[in-house]
Design a binder for these strands. Structure first.
Lengths: 337, 337
DNA sequence: CTGTTAGCGCTTTCAT
DNA sequence: ATGAAAGCGCTAACAG
């Protein structure tokens, strides 16, 4: 059996109270007793039972991160930032995957957010809407990551997708492209990400006096494989696009691949811009121009927001917007030397 | 405050014992009382306090997965499989990152494996040696993933790196390559992965009557960026290699990129094989031939091993070898139609 | 079949 | 400055 406070107390000839005080670095302890306790602590190699401590204190120091799939590069990189920052403030992270399935997302939320031992939940949802989230307010603290899918009274941190998409489109226009297409997103009511990116795309074209009509190709998801089919479809359009804005870097990677296969040159025939700036994008052939959201900023802001809400459960929900930038690389035109 | 068993018991006019029995699906309960309890349960929206349950039972149902970096594709894909399988058997996964730093690895182990509430630890180490692991046996169950860095009495699951590397080399030889180089790994005493892959590489060449001397280029880590520098160095060798075996797909991706930059054609001038078969490798240009370890098999085997050890702490340590296969793609030569 | 109760290991209020 | 003891919410051993 593990060593408990009582064991140490007996050994040192003091009460558990005193040992606890020493362990927790309390003030006001006689140097002599402190030394005696320390010795016993080390001799017995005491380790506090965190479960017992948590039961007592009502906090576990664990937060849960729910995301679609950890093996998708963007989410992997985001998770890295979350784990990294959380561990720097003494918090550990549990990870669960929803697979992007709204049903599974609901399950996880009701099951975990209410009952479990997590202090709070960071939730990167693809498919949930306001109605699904209703009734969760007031249980376990919850911070939404990515798109704000509804006007719920919940903390949210993300980037301005409309503005970011406009920036991507503006860049393509600046590169002299006039038939710019958008790629990605189911277009379904649940897919808020594609909704905002599409809106930014349209606004960007309109601002330059271009007509966005008919220049959007959907994909069932944001993965590389889906982009290949979509691009093949796109190349059958009456007029081939000369610019392509992909709603994720993985889609862009799939698109680049398929364009090579079809003998279309990038950027000469089509300039391509992605979204997320995953690490692989710097090393593809051609290297990929992409919108880079401030992932570390998202992670820090989200964890801080959660921690803040733990201390102030009744504070009004806040909206946090994090920065982004455009990383210009080979896929969108001449290199800027 | 949250609803407790006592609240429910009072409401239903029974004892906590009975409520507990209902919650845990015990047999032998009078249908009438069960119904009454069920009603109270639902009316109060009771959720069990898992921390209390864990304190009582001595098990949390949480395992910890320690890996170098979750944003590295291979580890992201592995984590995905672990989370996926674990959740199917009712286990949740906590993730911590070591950054590949031996010091940090030791910290995590002593801190977590002994003290925390995790039932057990899956540990994918890059740098730990037997001496570091000594003294951990007998505390919290621990299963080693990846390379077995020392002959410790610990459960271990991995693939046969020597055999896999020989397979990669044999494939290059079969493609008519005779000056085959290996790329990756610090060569340090702690880097067991590169040790075994290098050994397989050497054996593969020797088996074909080729001399491996002087055909190995080290890298400080397994990331894309490090491969670029290494390849540049390699191209200065008196004789250019016509085949390249990279110890990870990320290295291979960096190598492919640098070869393009330097105007070296793949596979015509140099055929390239990677290791890990991350998803991006199917979509690169050219697509990458790679060794594919059975990641799902590793995950399942590891979780099962951990669960088994929970029930039988004294069972002898076991060694699990999981399968792999070679995925042949464009980077290593003519397409096999 | 169900009620009573000890106790998991810890923190903390109340005393001294 | 330190001891005694209550109790976090739950399960299970012990009645009955």
């Amino acid at each position: 059996m593990a060593v408990t406070l009582r064991d140490v107390a007996e050994k040192a000839g003091v009460s558990v109270r005193t040992v606890s005080n020493v362990v927790n670095g309390f003030q006001h302890i006689a140097p002599a007793t402190r030394a005696r306790v320390q010795a016993a602590l080390e001799e017995l190699n005491y380790r506090p039972n965190l479960v017992a401590r948590s039961l007592r204190q009502g906090r576990t120091g664990i937060i849960m991160l729910i995301l679609p799939e950890i093996n998708v590069s963007y989410f992997g990189e985001l998770a890295h930032e979350v784990v990294d920052y959380a561990s720097s403030v003494g918090i550990t992270v549990q990870i669960d995957e929803s697979g992007g399935d709204p049903q599974r997302e609901k399950e996880l939320l009701t099951q975990l957010a209410q009952a479990s031992w997590v202090d709070g939940v960071l939730f990167s949802s693809l498919g949930l809407r306001g109605v699904d989230l209703a009734g969760l307010v007031g249980t376990r603290p919850l911070v939404l990551l990515g798109e704000r899918t509804a006007r719920t009274a919940l903390d949210h941190v993300g980037i301005d997708n409309v503005a970011a998409s406009r920036l991507a489109v503006a860049h393509l226009i600046e590169r002299g492209r006039t038939r710019i297409a958008a790629l990605g997103g189911s277009g379904g009511a649940r897919d808020a990400t594609s909704k905002y990116r599409l809106r930014g795309f349209q606004k960007g074209l309109e601002a330059a006096g271009l007509d966005p009509a008919g220049l959007y190709q959907r994909t069932p998801d944001y993965r590389r494989g889906s982009a290949a089919l979509a691009v093949r479809e796109m190349l059958r359009w009456p007029q081939r696009p000369d610019g392509l804005f992909c709603f994720s870097d993985e889609l862009a990677a799939g698109a680049l691949r398929e364009l090579v296969v079809q003998g279309v040159r990038v950027p000469e025939d089509i300039a391509v811009v992605g979204f997320d700036d995953i690490e692989a994008s710097s090393f593809s052939t051609p290297s990929l121009t992409s919108i880079r959201p401030d992932k570390a900023g998202i992670a820090k802001t989200a964890v801080d927001a959660l921690l803040h809400r733990l201390d102030a459960p009744e504070a009004p929900a806040r909206e946090h917007s994090v920065g982004f930038e455009l990383m210009v690389r080979e896929s969108s035109g001449p290199e800027l030397s």
